[in-house]
Design a protein around this nucleic acid. Structure first.
Lengths: 137, 137
DNA sequence: CGGGATCCGTAAAGATACTG
DNA sequence: CAGTATCTTTACGGATCCCG
């Protein structure tokens, strides 16, 4: 184990019956929408990256989490890992066709979200203010 | 606190500079793509739900997590909460316009993912098999 | 019925040191 | 350089009890 988490075990359920039990596709969805998964996919949408290069580009990600994220995405077939047997080691990461499709959707969601931040902030302030009033009861 | 997690603190960064530091929109993205957030949004895309009704529809979600998820989504302005002051209490949840936009994107991603599960499974088997070979070294 | 508050176990996240 | 191994810390998520 190590890479696969507790991902195995579930398997069937044909159609996408949103909700109800833990359907396997939900795990994949969590992989691509995970904290670092999102950033990795979006970054790789630009061009291939080497490990450390990707680490710097994302910033604030530990080696462990980046490794783990990349392995998960590679296993799911979203990321291609190209390790050259040279010294010092050189490993390039890039998106597969499948990964590119995923990355584009994720990026669209990310962009939509950042565009709507003003609305969200406004809503939050209203919410917090309403709460503050109630607190003075 | 209670609802906002550690959500506050960050605030600026104008453009969506993917990566680099913890930009605030990333938190929103995590809210809508969270384990229960995804399911709540997709369920509510169909019609409004009452609390317990939603709980049954999703299945396998604790009251605590559903409450927490709904509050977060309400605060962000994705979900509208309509509490009628009757006994027994009745609370209806529905999507706001903003929430509907988010839900549609999330659902699209969910559907795409479930449609690609065959590719993902195939990739996983290949990956695991390759690993199994190396393990016998 | 729809939560709020609290406690608790587990499992991820993070930092660090080590290796081919 | 690109990881792996190990340890510590954090927070997620569930169970329980209570209240309007």
């Amino acid at each position: 184990m190590a890479v696969s988490d507790k991902a195995i075990g579930t398997s069937v359920t044909d159609k996408y019956d949103i909700g109800e039990a833990m359907c396997p596709y939900r795990l994949v969805l969590e992989h691509v929408t995970s904290r670092w998964g999102v950033l990795v996919l979006i970054e790789l949408l630009e061009r291939p990256y080497r490990f450390s290069e990707l680490r710097r580009a994302i910033g604030r990600v530990s080696e462990k989490m980046l490794t783990q994220t990349l392995q998960t995405l590679e296993r799911d077939g979203f990321v291609h890992r190209d390790a050259k047997p040279v010294i010092p080691p050189r490993v390039d990461y890039s998106l597969t066709d499948l990964g590119r499709e995923a990355a584009e959707q994720v990026k669209a969601l990310a962009i939509w979200t950042s565009e709507r931040m003003a609305d969200v902030d406004k809503s939050r302030r209203a919410y917090d203010e309403a709460r503050a009033l109630k607190a003075r009861a």
